[in-house]
Computed example of a mutant assay.
Amino acid sequence: MFEPVKIAPSILSADFMDLGRDIALIEEAGAGYVHVDVMDGHFVPNLTMGVPVVRQLKKATSLPLDVHLMIDNPLEQVPWFLDAGADSVTVHVEALDEAGLFRAVSDIRGSGARAAVSVKPATPIEAVVPVIGEVDMVLVMSVEPGFSGQSFIEGSDARVARVVELARMAGASPLIQVDGGIGVATAPCVAAAGADVLVCGNAVFAAKDPGAALEAVRTAAEEARAAALGLSDILDEV
């Protein structure tokens, strides 16, 4: 929590006819991760990419692959994505019972990858409490998962702040990621609340200059983070 802000562009919004070019653009711009949205058409009403894409991405970039599983059967498929080269795997609390969550997190971390859990907007944030001390990251969805280009749900920053509170109560310090409607206008509020990793789709890939757009989002987030922590004056002097 309250780590330097990193941007994780979602390739769901990239040009799949020239994906290599888009990956190179965000890598050069200083992205922290490549965010890979995996949807099965059941857990969410959309069908996207799978293991073959992750396997090819692993060959195409040195950036960590941040794989977000929006699927009904994560326990079955987690090993597939780990084998394909995922550096971080996120599973949804809504897809698993408590025992299943612990097993998924254990399997992911046992492989050497980072484990994360995600919550949909309507799910109480407290659902992450059982595993908050075991995960490397908590993903707060700020739109209903399933489609790119949606608008940020107001109040999502309060949910981020609640994760910070719950983590501190548990003596844990997972990274906090936010996904959905993140851009220059919305990045500041979630970063100030404690978000460390911001997933951006159209805000980056639909821009005329994706690299400049990425940097603009990161700068806006960092400035808000500094202000929230009372570091603005110190940064101005550096």
Rank of each mutant, 00 (worst) to 15 (best):
M1I: 13
F2Y: 06
E3R: 15
A8N: 06
A8I: 04
A8W: 06
L12G: 05
D15Y: 08
L25W: 01
I26K: 00
E27A: 04
A29M: 01
A29Q: 01
D37N: 14
H42S: 15
M49E: 15
G50S: 13
A60H: 12
S62H: 15
S62T: 15
P64E: 09
D66G: 02
M70W: 09
L75G: 01
Q77G: 14
V78T: 04
P79C: 11
W80P: 12
V89L: 09
V91D: 02
H92P: 03
L96R: 08
A99T: 13
L101D: 08
A104N: 13
S106Q: 10
D107E: 15
R114P: 07
A115I: 09
A116M: 03
V119I: 04
K120E: 05
K120L: 08
I125V: 11
V128T: 03
V129L: 10
P130D: 11
G133V: 14
D136K: 02
M137I: 06
M137V: 01
V138K: 02
V138D: 07
V138E: 00
G146C: 08
S148I: 12
G149F: 13
Q150F: 05
I153K: 11
I153R: 12
S156W: 10
A158C: 14
A161P: 07
M169K: 15
I182K: 00
V184F: 01
V184S: 01
A192L: 05
A195Y: 02
D196Y: 04
F205G: 02
A207I: 00
D209L: 03
A212W: 07
A212S: 06
L214N: 01
E215M: 08
A221C: 00
E222L: 13
E222P: 14
A227G: 09
A227H: 05
G230I: 08
I234K: 07
E237A: 11
V238Y: 04
